[in-house]
């Protein structure tokens, strides 16, 4: 019974993972016979200015989008955990971006960001703000991509938080009410600590997903303008499938893998201190 599963794992996961590692020490370009380059690919990475830039972009993307995304989805979850009218409708509405195709989402957001006819700049103009050319300005393209990414994943995190919130027993809140606690101390002293396992899960997943962001960038900006939105996975893709430098791309993929692994380890290690459980 276990055999098909294990075979599948070996064939489609372990083998490619190991092969990638081997390829990262070669100059394979898919067609010609390849030569071993030792650690030259990794050395080149450190000298590659473009890699430096996409490395920075990836961190900016992650460090901005993860905290904002988590905070917003937590607030949203708390609101939608109350007995509001049409609460089910709102929950569904916020979840729709998650199940929408990224292609459709990016087309719509490209229109929203259109500087002359876009909704966003139209809304900004009510406040007398002359909105920027979002996706074509090196300064504003990254914020635009971050906004879209947050909007897209908000519903998923909200749903996880909602599940977490509903598993917190009402009796804590009742006890707090009897003691005369205000809403903010209930939120800070009961909700946040008891939600910490959920927050942990959401944080880890968000970090991993943000480090691996690709589709938003590929569909909305192609890494431009001036590589201002080019992230690591996008550069891996370019090297592998546009410049056909499989070895170099594999090395980069492994660097990314180690970064994600280290960040995740740190989170697991810190969890012991944060979590109430």
């Amino acid at each position: 019974m276990l055999l098909p599963n294990v075979l599948g794992f070996l064939l489609f996961l372990l083998l490619p993972v190991l092969a990638t590692f081997a390829i990262s020490f070669s100059d394979w370009n898919l067609t010609d016979s390849f030569q071993w380059r030792g650690v030259d690919n990794y050395k080149e990475l450190f000298e590659d200015k473009v890699f430096g830039q996409v490395f920075k972009n990836t961190f900016v993307f992650t460090l901005v989008s993860v905290p904002i995304g988590i905070a917003l989805s937590l607030v949203l979850a708390v609101f939608l955990n109350q007995k509001l009218r049409f609460v089910r409708f709102y929950r569904a509405a916020f979840f729709i971006p998650v199940i929408s195709s990224m292609v459709a989402v990016s087309v719509i957001w490209q229109w929203i960001y259109n500087p002359e006819y876009g909704l966003l700049n139209y809304a900004l103009s009510w406040f007398g703000i002359d909105g920027p050319a979002w996706l074509t300005s090196p300064r504003w393209a990254m914020p635009a991509v971050i906004i879209t990414s947050i909007w897209k994943s908000l519903g998923f995190n909200m749903l996880i938080f909602l599940a977490g919130l509903q598993s917190i027993s009402d009796s804590y809140y009742e006890a707090a009410d009897i003691d005369g606690a205000k809403w903010y101390s209930k939120f800070a002293r009961i909700t946040v600590p008891l939600l910490s396992p959920t927050t942990f899960f959401v944080t880890v997943m968000s970090f991993i997903n943000s480090f691996q962001v690709f589709d938003t960038v590929y569909l909305m900006t192609q890494g431009g303008p001036a590589r201002s939105t080019s992230v690591m996975v996008y550069y891996v893709f370019q090297n592998a499938f546009q410049y056909f430098r499989m070895g170099y791309a594999s090395a980069m993929a492994y660097v990314l893998f180690f970064i994600v692994m280290i960040v995740t380890f740190i989170q697991f290690w810190r969890q012991k201190k944060w979590s109430v459980y």
Binding site: V50, P138, R139, A226
Partner: peptide, 14 residues
């Protein structure tokens, strides 16, 4: 071309 475009964008747009 991609490298040149990226730099030109930084100059013209940035």
């Amino acid at each position: 071309q991609e490298d040149t475009s990226a730099e030109l964008d930084k100059y013209f747009l940035g």
